[in-house]
């Protein structure tokens, strides 16, 4: 295993897949000459040329739709949206077109396309650049949804996403791009992480904690601290929301009897509520306490750090919640 920053792991996955398969190409704003707003595509334009690593004008609806057209005709586009918030400006191409064409055609075609974009608050980027709106994508049948946490996960899941024959929306966390993780496979190893298989980060017996993306990192930190206090929590990192690995969650809750679900999206009508209701029939008689959930408060994300930080779960808030529950 190697230690890498998330952004470099993502770049490696893109690089390897472009080298392996010349139908893979990329489009997005500022991904070429400067290698991306978050530096995830550095050097790839030089290596693969302007046509395969295309700097677009600011025309999201246009280039996302072009991805769909290219995917229908034999290519494997990887489209970058600079911020997940911008999926709203190309929502039609994502959700009425990309997601549904296979179905509407009665299976005559498929759309092997990946749309990558960063989510997450904590950077004083205010209401239009901080949202964690991966749950939106989950609500539309026909899209697979990936929410990786570590560098190794980003790499392995992105490789799987690019090889998948369906549309995949890949939500990276903007606050993790420069974080280093030591779980990246060695160079030359071609490791794809399968969709729908959650990762058990730490095993425990007192409570099950389910998280994804940056919340996994916060929860892991909280749980390490709680271990010293004698609390044993089991942490499950979902990796993908569609498909969702309910089996791993159910098995764990049967063991611990308690469940805390954490997701950075707004709490209402989102990921946490869906998971709770989906697994409840299977664990109803095993639960020793009500299922609890944490997420971002139901307000647009404010600019001032004095307002923003209290709204988003972090390791301290998670530790306090777990203490309260066990």
């Amino acid at each position: 295993m190697r230690e890498l920053m998330v952004r470099d792991a993502i770049r490696e996955a893109l690089d390897e897949e472009m080298a392996r398969d010349n139908t893979v190409f990329q489009m997005g704003e500022d991904i070429g000459v400067i290698g991306g707003n978050f530096k995830t595509t550095v050097g790839l334009r030089d290596k693969y040329g302007d046509l395969r690593v295309k700097d677009t004008p600011i025309s999201e609806q246009g280039f996302v739709g072009m991805g769909v057209g290219a995917a229908l005709t034999g290519m494997r586009p990887v489209i970058e949206l600079m911020f997940a918030d911008f999926l709203m400006v190309c929502g039609d191409q994502l959700f009425n077109q990309m997601a549904k064409i296979t179905y509407m055609s009665g299976g005559q075609c498929n759309v092997p396309m990946v749309v990558r974009m960063p989510i997450g608050g904590g950077r004083s980027s205010a209401a239009q650049h901080s949202q964690s709106i991966h749950a939106w994508a989950c609500h539309i049948p026909g899209v697979k949804v990936v929410v990786p946490s570590t560098a190794g996960e980003c790499k392995g899941l992105l490789k799987t996403a690019i090889r998948d024959n369906n549309p995949v929306m890949f939500f990276e966390h903007k606050m993790l791009y420069t974080t280093k993780f030591d779980d990246v496979p060695d160079e030359g190893e071609d490791i794809c992480i399968p969709f729908g298989k959650a990762r058990i980060v730490t095993e425990g017996t007192d409570i099950t904690v389910v998280a994804n993306s940056r919340m996994t990192i916060y929860a892991e930190k909280a749980i390490k601290k709680l271990q010293k206090e004698g609390i044993s929590a089991e942490l499950i990192d979902l990796r993908t929301l569609v498909p969702l690995d309910t089996e791993t969650i159910i098995k764990s809750v049967k063991k611990t009897g308690k469940l805390l679900i954490i997701d950075e999206g707004h709490i209402s009508f989102g990921v946490t509520g869906e998971i709770a209701s989906r697994i409840l029939p299977d664990v109803f008689y095993d639960l020793e306490a009500p299922i609890e959930r944490m997420g971002t408060a139901d307000v647009p994300l404010p600019f001032s750090p004095a307002l923003e930080f209290p709204l988003i779960p972090d390791d301290k808030k998670i530790a306090a919640k777990i203490r309260e529950m066990v």
């Binding site: 004083s124 205010a126 209401a127 647009p300 404010p302 600019f303 001032s304 750090p305 004095a306 307002l307």
Partner: peptide
């Protein structure tokens, strides 16, 4: 004040430079 995220800003610190 808004740009510094302060209470006295045009948007009470909710908007910041871009809003």
């Amino acid at each position: 004040a808004e740009i510094l995220g302060k209470e006295t800003g045009y948007s009470k610190g909710k908007g910041g430079s871009m809003h």
